Computed example of a mutant assay.
Amino acid sequence: MLSPSISAAETSDAVRRNISSFRTHAWEDHFDTLGVGVIISDTSSKVLQHWTADGEMRLYPTSVPMSEELTRRGYTEVVEKRENPSWAPTPSMRERNPEWPARIPGGDPENPLGTRALYLSWQYYRIHGTQDTRKIGRRSSNGCIGLYNEHIEEVFDRVPVGTQVKLI
C-alpha cells in the first residue's frame, strides 16, 4: 500500500530514478570466440563478467580506478595467476605516495592484492582480491580491478592463463 503522502506517479518516478547503473554485455559484441574464456570488466557499472569456454557466465561487483588517468581500457589477457601475491607499488605510486612500503608480502592483512591475483599482459595491471571490502562498488583503485576475496578465489579457479580480457 502506498503512503498517503506519496502518489503512484511519484513512486513510479522514484523507481525510475533509482535504477542501478548495472548492465551486462554480450561477449560476442567484443570477441570473435570464447576461446578458453572471456572476461569483460565494465569500469562504469563496476561489474566483471566471466564466461568459461563452455559459455557459462557469472557476474561480480568490482572496484575500479579512482580517476580516468589511472584507467586503462582495451584488450589484454591473463598471463599469470598467483595465490597470495606479494605487492609492490608501481614507480608512479611511489612518486605520489613516498611513505608507502616498498613491498608487502602475500598473506599480510595489509596487502592490497588480497588472496589471489590475475596478472594481465599490461604491466602493473591486475584483477585481484582486496582486504578492504569497502572499496567494492567504488572508484578506489590505482588502476586495477578489485573483487571481494571470495569472488577472486572463484574466478581464479575458473580462469585459465590465456583468458581474453577487455576493460571498457
Rank of each mutant, 00 (worst) to 15 (best):
E110H: 13
A26L: 07
V79H: 00
T33G: 05
D132T: 04
G107T: 06
W27L: 11
H151N: 13
R72V: 10
F31I: 03
T133L: 08
R23W: 02
R58N: 08
P109G: 10
Y125F: 15
S21A: 15
A117N: 04
K46I: 08
S45C: 14
A9K: 13
F156Y: 14
G137Q: 07
D54T: 14
G35I: 09
S140L: 04
S141E: 04
A53K: 14
L120S: 01
G55H: 02
R158H: 08
G146V: 01
G37L: 01
L118E: 00
S44K: 14
V155I: 11
S5M: 10
A102Q: 10
R116A: 06
D108K: 12
A8M: 15
T24A: 13
H50K: 05
E99K: 06
Y148T: 02
S12G: 12
Q164K: 11
E154D: 15
A26Q: 12
P89V: 00
T163S: 07
D108F: 07
S121T: 03
K166N: 06
L113P: 01
P85L: 08
Y119E: 00
E28R: 14
T163D: 06
V78P: 06
T90H: 01
P101S: 07
I152Q: 07
W27V: 12
I39H: 04
L120I: 02
L59N: 12
I40E: 00
Y75E: 07
N142A: 12
R94C: 00
T133V: 13
A88Q: 07
G107R: 05
N149D: 13
L167G: 01
P85T: 08
A117S: 13
G129Y: 08
E10I: 05
P85Y: 09
L48H: 07
V78G: 04
A8D: 13
K81W: 00
E77Q: 15
E10H: 03
W100C: 02
S20Q: 13
S41W: 05
T76S: 10
K135R: 07
E56P: 06
Y124E: 02
N84T: 12
S20G: 13
S5D: 13
R126K: 08
Y124F: 14
R16M: 10
E80C: 03
D42Y: 09
P91F: 09
T130H: 02
I136H: 03
R139L: 11
E83S: 11
G146H: 10
N142K: 09
R17A: 14
E95D: 10
R16N: 13
P91I: 06
P112Y: 14
P65K: 02
F156N: 00
A53S: 15
T115W: 02
L147D: 05
M1F: 08
E80Q: 12
E150W: 06
A26S: 14
D32A: 15
A88I: 00
R134I: 01
V159R: 04
V38R: 11
R58L: 12
R116E: 01
D157Y: 07
P105G: 08
V159Q: 01
T90S: 15
I152Y: 08
P65G: 10
S12Q: 11
